[in-house]
Design a protein around this nucleic acid. Structure first.
Lengths: 335, 335
DNA sequence: ATGAAAGCGCTAACAG
DNA sequence: CTGTTAGCGCTTTCAT
């Protein structure tokens, strides 16, 4: 391994000078800069980011804690953050919390121990998340996809209420009144807000929400499968189902197919999220899509900004959803 | 921030002792250990991994360089590596090379600068990859999914030849002879080996490979779309298509649907990879599945092993594929 | 414009 | 069993 002093030696300068040309700080005579650059080149010197981190008490790393690396929604986020980080000379530390608060806590501690420059998180708990330990450690934090209520952080989320509202509205416009809903846990803002949107669309049209049609659970395909089965076994069953995220949709689809029901003839379906397969399956799914890449891009931009100037007040960015009408909803007439 | 000397002070010992209890090295009297532990607790001390890394010249980080974070195949890999790393107290550094050799090179340099403990990579080039710079830097390297030819590394890959061979064999067993194939670039082992499997199944049955039926391209859905279009425009068109990875399959599916062709009545389809949606779409796709999680798990286990004892000779693990017969292949009779 | 020197927080000889 | 000491490779005053 070649150290900064090796470069200094070869260039006949002090390591301080080498450091200066590396970071473009202070005044350096053009001729010495060239000498140094040449020495760096011939030696193939690469500064140790570890030593630098120790010295300046901060690394060039952005921590990214997400809840499910196998969910395409989060994957888009990761992709966007990676892009922005890379463009700015940062690398990313990826952690999968698995929606477990303990793993989340462990990774938060890791972020502090590794002195990352900033953290982006999809937290598991809207209140009481360990992520607030980052603030006293002076590590900028931005919450993405979900809101955090017990500390001041930059936030970038979707307008979930509106997304759910609009897509349920669409269903109602097609004559549906008995609309089943399968939605993520109510301990997260996403689940809560989507439920709220569902409710307000219903009540706005004078439709009484019916408890049997409303199902909550962890946002997994298992939940989707079980709850869809339950909904379809109702007598009478709903004429349409609204699934609260892409995993739930997969499970619901399995249940529907297992019962040999046809979409949309036997049951209409609208889904939150627009994974690639939603327009490959037949019929193509009517969905409310999130600007996933944009969510990630903005979050990354926000941390970077706050890494530069920590002072500014916190921002909350709310992005609009987009309903994409395709073929999974049938027009029904009230019988 | 609380440092090790703060703990030492409070516990009335030297920092060396604190370090010893932290790492369970050497002999420590039980009473002092307790004193130290208590001090750690009351102070809420978390050791700086940065300082440790600098001192021991290696971090507790495993670098993971993959080519496409949005491809579920790689995502499974990431998931597995994350799991194993986490279980062993390692964190992962995730980098997306985007199948670009320059980005790969940049990230390799980063790994060295960050002194990661080991690297797992799906390299973009089977020869001439910058990843061999890691070896002189004493950083263990394992190549996953793809083989590397110009340096000695641990490798874990699928038996691609066999996978392609078996699934094409299945097609032939159902009477197909004009079998189109859309496959990834021949500069990567995956593409080459899958092509080889295709070829050997054909020749084994005395079927003459027909150049017009064989299409190569980058492993993207764009390639799948364009090449499927080309294949379907042939006169006569193939009776079956074999797509070389999940992205290509998506593109091919789009092309087939755009032409209003029915699977398997108008065209049979078999695919490499078994993403979740392959059994949601109708008809369900006959595929050759890779043990993705297992690939990642083994790769992670291998780096960890080599981090412990660098000496051992390199291993190459080859995992078997699994053909999953579903409904996308029709029996045809030779006309 | 450049160099000397101190020190980031930790570990590992070495000594006792 | 425990403490002293010397760095790991870098940045940053403070001199000059």
């Amino acid at each position: 391994m070649v150290r900064i002093k090796d470069v200094a030696q070869l260039a006949n300068v002090s390591s301080a000078t080498v450091s200066r040309v590396l970071s473009n700080k202070g005044q350096i005579r053009e001729s010495t800069r060239e000498k140094v650059l040449e020495a760096i080149n011939t030696l193939g010197y690469k500064p140790s980011r570890v030593a630098r981190s120790l010295r300046v008490r901060s690394s060039q790393i952005i921590g990214l804690i997400i809840s499910d690396i196998q969910n395409p929604f989060f994957t888009s986020l990761v992709r966007a953050v990676e892009d922005v980080a890379h463009q700015n000379g940062y690398a990313i530390f990826l952690c999968n919390s698995d929606e477990h608060i303990e793993k989340e806590a462990l990774y938060i501690d890791l972020m502090i121990a590794e002195q990352v420059a900033g953290v982006i998180i999809t937290t598991t708990q809207e209140a009481g998340s360990p992520c607030k330990k980052l603030l006293p450690a002076n590590i900028p934090l931005v919450s993405i996809d979900r809101r955090v209520f017990d500390c001041e952080v930059d936030t970038v989320v979707l307008d979930n209420v509106r997304g759910a509202y609009e897509v349920v509205n669409h269903l109602i416009g097609f004559g549906h009144e008995r609309i089943g809903v399968i939605i993520g846990s109510q301990t997260m803002t996403t689940g809560r807000e989507r439920y709220e949107g569902y409710l307000s669309a219903l009540t706005e049209h004078g439709i009484q929400p019916e408890p049997a049609l409303i199902r909550f659970g962890p946002p997994t395909s298992k939940t989707g499968y079980e709850m869809a089965n339950a909904l379809l076994s109702l007598d009478p069953p709903p004429t349409a189902i609204f699934t609260g995220n892409n995993l739930i949709t997969i499970g619901a689809l399995h249940a529907i197919q297992e019962k040999n029901l046809a979409i949309p003839d036997d049951i209409s379906l609208v889904a939150f999220d627009d994974p690639e397969w939603a327009s490959i399956i037949r019929p193509r799914l009517t969905v409310v899509a999130q600007p996933t890449y944009e969510l990630g891009r903005i979050a990354a931009t926000l941390v970077l900004k706050r890494i530069k100037d920590a002072g500014d007040p916190c921002e909350t960015v709310v992005l609009p959803p987009e309903v994409r009408i395709r073929e999974s909803v049938k027009r029904v007439t009230i019988s």
